[in-house]
């Protein structure tokens, strides 16, 4: 791709590259570096301090629980939706695909708000559920619902273009040779899409663990009970415990970096086995 007839803009190359690097450093790299710089502002002891508090550990546990429930649910949904959309023809398919993408265009705060409107103290079903002793808002259930709504499209939109591209020939062949439906799915389909599935799960998980706006609306910020890691960062920050907030934030920044690393690895190593749109 370095043919002599490519556009060169003689003399401009260093300027454009420098501008790109300067812009990325100021806007993207600096914030990431800042998290670690601020976290170590009081030395290693200051950095470790929030990790000696039980509230931090319950936030870590809650974040793992919420992601651990939400991600598998949306993975199953993504597989089912991709199977329906790519293996069959039916009326309203593009409407269905638009609906799957819809959560991406909704504000996180609205994704939390809708659950309060349904299940909050003055929500449509709130009083009835309250009478039965069921609580959803300000509980883990509410956190999971908000997270599931926010992360619903991730797995489906990785699988749909890939399964579209692969077509149904291999599955049809397996069925003709006498394999059952589930056997075909587990022995043919799943192995064919496993890297794309992992890619989608990775992005879904990063968003599920890092989500702030939607869970903030339904959480009630009860320390030790409904406080996820991002919400814990906010609480510490608002209490002017900046070092503590940034120390806890390094966990989330680390999660983001790990996700990027794994994502780049998948794009490089399994380019042919993830959706065409992801191959740069």
């Amino acid at each position: 791709m370095s043919g002599s007839s490519k556009i060169h803009l003689p003399g401009w190359a260093p300027l454009i590259v420098l501008l790109a690097i300067a812009g990325m450093v100021a806007l993207v790299v600096l914030p990431l570096a800042m998290v670690f710089i601020q976290a170590l502002g009081n030395g290693v002891d200051g950095f470790l301090e929030p990790f000696s508090e039980p509230d931090t550990w319950s936030a870590i546990k809650l974040t793992l629980i919420v992601a651990g429930i939400s991600v598998p649910l949306n993975a199953v949904f993504g597989l089912a939706a991709a199977w329906a959309v790519t293996r069959f023809q039916f009326a309203g398919k593009s409407l269905l695909m638009a609906l799957i993408d819809l959560p991406f265009s909704i504000s996180p705060v609205i994704s939390g708000l809708v659950w309060v409107l349904l299940f909050g103290a003055q929500g449509f079903f709130g009083p009835a559920l309250d009478a039965m002793g069921v609580k959803i808002i300000f509980t883990v259930t509410g956190l999971v619902l908000a997270t599931v709504l926010i992360t619903l499209p991730f797995v489906a939109r990785e699988l749909i273009p890939l399964m579209q591209e692969q077509g149904a020939d291999e599955e049809a062949a397996a069925m003709t040779l006498g394999a059952g439906g589930w056997t075909t799915f587990f022995r043919v389909t799943l192995p064919n899409v496993k890297w794309a599935l992992l890619y989608g799960v990775l992005l879904c998980n990063a968003r599920a663990m890092g989500e702030f706006g939607a869970v903030s609306v339904v959480s009630g910020h009860i320390r030790g009970l409904t406080n996820t890691l991002p919400l814990h960062v906010e609480i510490l920050y608002n209490e002017y415990d900046f070092v503590g907030a940034f120390a806890v934030a390094t966990l989330l920044a680390g999660l983001g970096l790990l996700t990027l690393l794994a994502k780049s690895f998948l794009e490089w190593r399994f380019a042919g086995e993830i959706a065409a749109t992801r191959r740069h």
Partner: peptide, 23 residues
């Protein structure tokens, strides 16, 4: 640089928020 482009997707928004504020 190419990989870092996705950082705003991967960095949880609250973390980005306090880091940008500090800067």
């Amino acid at each position: 640089l190419d990989a870092l482009v996705d950082l705003p997707f991967a960095l949880p928004t609250a973390v980005a928020g306090i880091a940008l504020t500090a800067i």
